[in-house]
Write a protein that binds this DNA or RNA. Sequence first.
RNA 1: CGGGGCGUAGCUCAGCUUGGUAGAGCGCUUGGUUUGGGACCAAGAAGUCGCAGGUUCGAAUCCUGUCGCCCCGACCA
Length: 510
Amino acid sequence: MSKGNENAISPRREEDFPEWYQQVVRSAEMAENSEVRGCMVIRPWGYALWERMQGALDAMFKATGHKNAYFPLFIPLSHLQKEAEHVEGFAKECAVVTHHRLELKDGKLVPAGELTEPLVVRPTSETIIGATYAKWVKSYRDLPILLNQWANVVRWELRPRLFLRTAEFLWQEGHTAHETEVEAIEETEKMLGVYDTFAREWLAIPVIRGEKSESERFPGAVRTYCIEAMVQDRKAIQAGTSHFLGQNFAKASGIKFLSRNNTEELAWTTSWGVSTRLIGTLLMAHGDDDGAVLPPRIAGTQIVIIPITPKEETRAVVLAKAEEIATALRSASYAGEPLRIEIDSRDIGGGTKTWEWIKKGVPLRIEIGPRDLESGSAAVARRDKGPKEKEFLPSDTLTARLPEILSEIQRGLLDRALAFRKVHTKKIDTKEEFYEFFTPKNQEKPEIHGGFALTHWNGSAEVEAKIKEELKVTIRCIPEANGDEFTNEPGICPFTGEPSQRRVIFGKAY
RNA sequence: CGGGGCGUAGCUCAGCUUGGUAGAGCGCUUGGUUUGGGACCAAGAAGUCGCAGGUUCGAAUCCUGUCGCCCCGACCA
């Protein structure tokens, strides 16, 4: 069956973005829904992305002085109760274990052996890690503690979406305890910087660094910082967070120490995390109507070699040449790592095979056939160009040229995403224009509309709540001034007419 | 928890209004023809029609109940 010039993914982004996203995840074989509602099976191609993210981030955490540890999946109910805001924030979405045994009754397994104290499956680990730190910290000499853990957490979400919001997800959570407030704030900002760098340089996503307003803050935090990404339906995705927890959790967990002045002090703590949500963000940021588009630095496989073996008699020699090229390429490197190459010699139709790799988003495809052997060339196709476009390169130039092309793709994706975000970020100074910006033209079937509004705000939570109520729009962050798009100049809040210290970013969020 | 949609072959779905005991396309297996390409031809395997009751000589189809999934909200990373 020929599909002509049709796109590989149906519907297209502009037709139905949520459905497009699901099709991309599915046809790229990244993940699928499991039998358990809200939980997903992460398939090898999706998990490879997570492994790449883990590798890169883990190295960055270690370079900033952190070590890995592991804390339990189960948290005693009483621990969670200690921090009031925290309880309120998470209580509604906790999974609770109340029994530890099953018994066979009338042919059915029923829970037995009720626990004296129920256990909560961690929605995040501040409380249990805090309780542990309380035991470890006696003196200022025990500080700082700089730990990270790679773990799964469970939040019983009402409406799950593959990668973006699942009942169980994988993440890393850093938890640090410090002697002084200044040091803890520095840590919070440093880790936000790590996330920012990672998002830009590895994921090619131009995130905005900023601070959350009070109402969007992590439950129990004094300040929450974030990196916010805009994806192709112009909505915001919080891609990572870093929290300055003040002494709230230290107080709740009893992390106390004798200071240099021989006084008893509470420690200052931070926590920071990113999750498998980054995979969803990546797909929504770069994907096109033919499926996933992976930035080379994060792709599990950067280059796939597709041997073209039309005739049985040339098959062996073509396959040998493919191996030879793969071996040569593996000794080349891009961004400080050896190229990751795969040869796809499966015995299926060539067109089918090519489209599979397009949908999976592999950055480069190399086709090698009998004619290329004669001419000493190879056909190279880039995922960031049209599916039919290919360039014939002399095969002895591949090891030099392909890393350059990967670099161009990586940079191109970042540039494209940044340009997209800039086009859809607008300074808005009147209430009318603001409402116009965020109201779909067709209420029945809302089209992709809006984006980020850079608007003054008087700092009032009531204004925020009203806008959220009426437009489903929230303050994504108070962006850090960068001397370019984001500045600290004061102005007038268009909702109240009151003075505003600076513009903040409004948007619809995932 | 509100609104909408849907559970029929591995996937996407038709059939249901007007009950008669299961279909298509894709995929899969085999054989053949093709071969710079998601190809073509032929044969084949594959479904107790979500589950439980009811009506009926007879239920995928009608009725009642129930479970589950997806989308849009509320909540959230």
